[in-house]
Simulated scan of single mutants.
Amino acid sequence: MSDLDAGLAAGRLAALELQRETISLYRPGAGGFNWETGADIPAAAIGIYAGPARVKPDRTEGREVDAGEANVTLRRYVVSLPWGTPAPAVRPRPGDVIDVTASPDARMVGLRLWVTGVETSSTATAWRIAGEDRS
């Protein structure tokens, strides 16, 4: 084992210890409308990952934008998944959703983030996904 491999193994173990939240990462379904019955067809989501993660703010301040008639503040987060997470059948992409389902910090539970980017690297200590809180 090279010094680099040993350092990466130690870094990945340390990153895993920081992953104290539990998340659900999924792709929202398209849904639809049944013209014969006049009822909405519920959207079936595609599950991508569920398990431990580290969710932390990327920046301390948010950016206000106009969305329709509402004022929305965008806050950026970095979500780190375990390095050893197997490659999912469906790769995450912008527009996918991350829900924080459990955390030692009760204020994090229920946080919904929208994926804005996915980072991969053979020398990373965790699999990082960029997300936005659009509240």
Rank of each mutant, 00 (worst) to 15 (best):
A14F: 13
V90W: 00
S121Q: 13
W114A: 08
A45D: 15
A67Y: 08
A126T: 10
N34F: 02
R76I: 00
L13C: 03
P57C: 00
D96E: 08
R20V: 13
A67R: 14
P82V: 01
A39H: 11
G68C: 08
P88N: 05
P94M: 02
A53I: 05
R20W: 04
A10F: 07
R20I: 08
T22P: 00
M108F: 07
G31V: 07
L8S: 04
A50I: 07
A10Q: 13
P94E: 06
A53V: 04
A30N: 10
A102T: 03
A126R: 01
P94R: 12
R63I: 12
Q19K: 11
D58A: 15
V79D: 01
E119N: 09
I98L: 09
W127F: 14
R76S: 11
R107L: 06
A10V: 11
N71L: 10
W83T: 00
A87L: 09
V115I: 09
G62P: 02
A53P: 06
Y26G: 03
V55S: 06
G110D: 12
A130G: 12
S122T: 14
G47Y: 00
V65R: 00
A124Y: 09
A70M: 10
T37Q: 11
T73A: 02
W35F: 12
V72G: 00
A43T: 10
I46K: 08
I48D: 01
G51Y: 05
L74H: 06
A89I: 10
V109M: 08
E119R: 15
V118H: 12
A14N: 12
A30G: 12
D66I: 01
Q19V: 05
A126Q: 05
N34Y: 03
A67D: 13
P57L: 10
P92C: 07
S80P: 00
A53T: 07
A45N: 15
G31N: 05
A87W: 00
L111T: 13
G68V: 07
V109C: 07
T125A: 10
R75Q: 09
R93W: 04
